Amino acid sequence: MAPKNAQDATEGWQEVPRDPEPSDLGYEMDDWEVIRARKNDRGHLMFLPEQEDMLREEAFIVADACSVCDVIDRI
């Protein structure tokens, strides 16, 4: 159910744990394969879902390598 007004939304955020689990935010974990590619001295990463049916639904990501970081390294 969506909040009725800004005050309800604020109170809702105050109830969320400080370090919530991804599932608490509505995310589901999936396994993705990372493919590294290099062209003209620029590195790119392609993220492909391991489930073939997701790939058929155009579920993939291409990003510059410098735009991606491992969040474990940031803790």
Results as ranks from 00 to 15, higher is better:
residue 40 N to R: 02
residue 30 D to Y: 12
residue 41 D to W: 04
residue 73 D to G: 03
residue 61 I to E: 00
residue 38 R to L: 15
residue 48 L to W: 05
residue 53 D to K: 09
residue 38 R to C: 14
residue 24 D to G: 11
residue 46 M to R: 08
residue 68 V to Y: 11
residue 64 D to R: 09
residue 26 G to T: 09
residue 48 L to P: 09
residue 23 S to P: 02
residue 3 P to T: 05
residue 6 A to W: 14
residue 32 W to Y: 07
residue 63 A to E: 11
residue 49 P to F: 03
residue 22 P to D: 07
residue 73 D to M: 09
residue 20 P to I: 10
residue 33 E to Q: 10
residue 6 A to F: 11
residue 28 E to Y: 00
residue 7 Q to H: 07
residue 73 D to C: 04
residue 68 V to N: 12
residue 53 D to E: 15
residue 69 C to W: 15
residue 9 A to R: 13
residue 37 A to P: 07
residue 14 Q to P: 00
residue 36 R to C: 11
residue 47 F to I: 01
residue 49 P to G: 14
residue 38 R to H: 10
residue 10 T to N: 10
residue 3 P to H: 14
residue 48 L to F: 03
residue 51 Q to F: 02
residue 15 E to K: 14
residue 33 E to G: 12
residue 7 Q to W: 09
residue 18 R to Q: 12
residue 35 I to N: 13
residue 56 R to C: 08
residue 46 M to K: 02
residue 16 V to Y: 02
residue 32 W to M: 03
residue 21 E to H: 08
residue 29 M to K: 11
residue 52 E to T: 09
residue 48 L to I: 11
residue 45 L to P: 00
residue 55 L to M: 03
residue 11 E to L: 13
residue 62 V to K: 03
residue 10 T to P: 00
residue 60 F to T: 01
residue 20 P to W: 14
residue 65 A to G: 15
residue 37 A to I: 12
residue 26 G to A: 03
residue 4 K to H: 12
residue 74 R to S: 06
residue 58 E to C: 04
residue 18 R to L: 13
residue 20 P to L: 10
residue 51 Q to Y: 05
residue 19 D to V: 03
residue 12 G to H: 01
residue 13 W to V: 08
residue 65 A to P: 05
residue 55 L to G: 04
residue 32 W to L: 10
residue 18 R to C: 02
residue 47 F to V: 00
residue 37 A to V: 08
residue 16 V to F: 09
residue 1 M to I: 14
residue 26 G to W: 06
residue 19 D to F: 00
residue 50 E to H: 12
residue 47 F to C: 04
residue 8 D to P: 07
residue 73 D to F: 10
residue 4 K to S: 04
residue 71 V to W: 08
residue 68 V to I: 04
residue 43 G to F: 04
residue 36 R to Y: 11
residue 28 E to P: 00
residue 57 E to R: 15
residue 70 D to A: 10
residue 4 K to Y: 05
residue 70 D to E: 13
residue 27 Y to R: 00
residue 19 D to Q: 00
residue 19 D to S: 12
residue 55 L to I: 14
residue 25 L to G: 06
residue 6 A to S: 07
residue 27 Y to F: 11
residue 7 Q to K: 01
residue 72 I to T: 09
residue 70 D to Q: 14
residue 21 E to F: 05
residue 42 R to D: 13
residue 8 D to K: 11
residue 41 D to L: 00
residue 33 E to D: 15
residue 20 P to A: 01
residue 61 I to S: 00
residue 69 C to D: 02
residue 58 E to Q: 01
residue 12 G to E: 03
residue 47 F to Q: 00
residue 36 R to S: 11
residue 67 S to Y: 07
residue 48 L to K: 15
residue 68 V to W: 15
residue 46 M to V: 12
residue 36 R to E: 11
residue 64 D to L: 10
residue 38 R to S: 10
residue 17 P to G: 12
residue 34 V to R: 07
residue 62 V to N: 06
residue 56 R to S: 07
residue 28 E to S: 05
residue 3 P to G: 04
residue 10 T to K: 09
